[in-house]
Simulated scan of single mutants.
Amino acid sequence: MNTNTTYVPNNLVWAILSTLLCCLPLGIVSIVFAAQVNGKLAAGDVAGAQEASEKAKKWAIWSAGVGIAVVVLYLIFIFAMGGLAAIQQ
């Protein structure tokens, strides 16, 4: 049994959640990198697995940020149009 295995988080859960709840295109990129982590670890490429893990995390964060920004801009637009409609009456 090999007890010297290195744990590298694949961030797949965050990638999937950011894809479904935030921004689809950026989330898909995150899923692709997250899916590479375990294969690279199995091949013994710890540095490559860590790099893929970091990229998956980065893209999931970007996806969440874009999703939140879109929602905020949408709400600002809706409130601005509501205020504009109230002024016109």
Score class of each variant (00 low, 15 high):
Gly83Gln: 04
Pro9Phe: 03
Gly39Arg: 10
Ala85Lys: 11
Leu41Ala: 01
Lys57Ala: 11
Thr5Cys: 13
Pro25Ile: 07
Gln50Tyr: 04
Leu24Lys: 00
Ala34Gln: 03
Tyr74Ile: 15
Phe79Gly: 05
Val66Gly: 07
Leu17Trp: 12
Ile78Asn: 02
Leu17Lys: 10
Ala49Leu: 07
Cys23Phe: 14
Ile78Asp: 09
Ile76Glu: 02
Ile68Arg: 14
Asn10Met: 01
Tyr74Thr: 15
Trp62Phe: 14
Glu54Ile: 06
Ile87Gln: 13
Met1Glu: 00
Cys23Thr: 06
Asn2Val: 03
Ile31Gly: 04
Ser30Val: 06
Ala69Met: 09
Gly83His: 11
Glu51Ser: 15
Gln36Phe: 11
Asp45Leu: 00
Ile78Leu: 14
Gly83Val: 01
Leu20Phe: 08
Gln36Cys: 15
Tyr7Leu: 15
Gln88Asn: 05
Leu24Pro: 00
Val66Pro: 03
Val29Leu: 12
Ala80Val: 13
Leu20Val: 11
Gly39Tyr: 04
Asn11Gly: 13
Gly39Thr: 08
Gln89Thr: 13
Val46Glu: 08
Ala56Ser: 14
Gly82Ser: 13
Thr3Ser: 15
Ala34Lys: 05
Val71Thr: 13
Ala69Gly: 09
Gly65Met: 11
Pro25Asn: 02
Thr3Asp: 15
Leu12Gly: 02
Phe33Arg: 05
Leu41Trp: 01
Leu73His: 01
Gly83Phe: 08
Trp14Arg: 08
Ala35Tyr: 00
Ser53Gln: 05
Leu12Pro: 03
Thr19Asn: 07
Leu75Met: 14
Ala34Ile: 01
Val66Lys: 00
Leu75Tyr: 06
Ile76Lys: 06
Pro25Gly: 02
Lys58Asp: 09
Leu20Thr: 06
Ala85Trp: 12
Phe77Asn: 15
Leu24Ala: 11
Phe77Asp: 06
Ala15Asp: 02
Met81His: 07
Ala64Arg: 12
Ala35Trp: 06
Ser30Pro: 04
Gln36Gly: 06
Phe79Gln: 12
Leu26Glu: 00
Gly67Trp: 05
Ala64Phe: 14
Thr19Trp: 04
Gly67Ser: 09
Val8Pro: 06
Cys23Ala: 02
Leu73Asn: 10
Phe77Met: 15
Trp59His: 10
Thr5Trp: 04
Thr3Met: 12
Gly83Ser: 09
Ile78Gln: 10
Leu75Glu: 04
Ala69Phe: 11
Thr6Trp: 06
Leu84His: 05
Met81Pro: 01
Glu54Phe: 11
Ala47Gln: 08
Asn11Met: 07
Ala43Asp: 03
Ala43Arg: 04
Asn2Ser: 14
Leu73Ile: 12
Val71Gly: 00
Pro25Tyr: 03
Leu26Val: 07
Ala52Pro: 02
Thr3Pro: 03
Asn38Leu: 10
Leu75Trp: 02
Gly48Arg: 05
Gly83Lys: 13
Gly67Val: 08
Ile76Trp: 04
Leu41Met: 07
Gly44Ile: 05
Leu24Tyr: 10
Pro9Trp: 05
Asn4Thr: 11
Gly27Glu: 03
Lys57Tyr: 11
Ala69Lys: 10
Ala34Trp: 03
Val29Arg: 15
Ala43Gly: 01
Lys40Cys: 03
Ile76Gln: 08
Phe77Val: 12
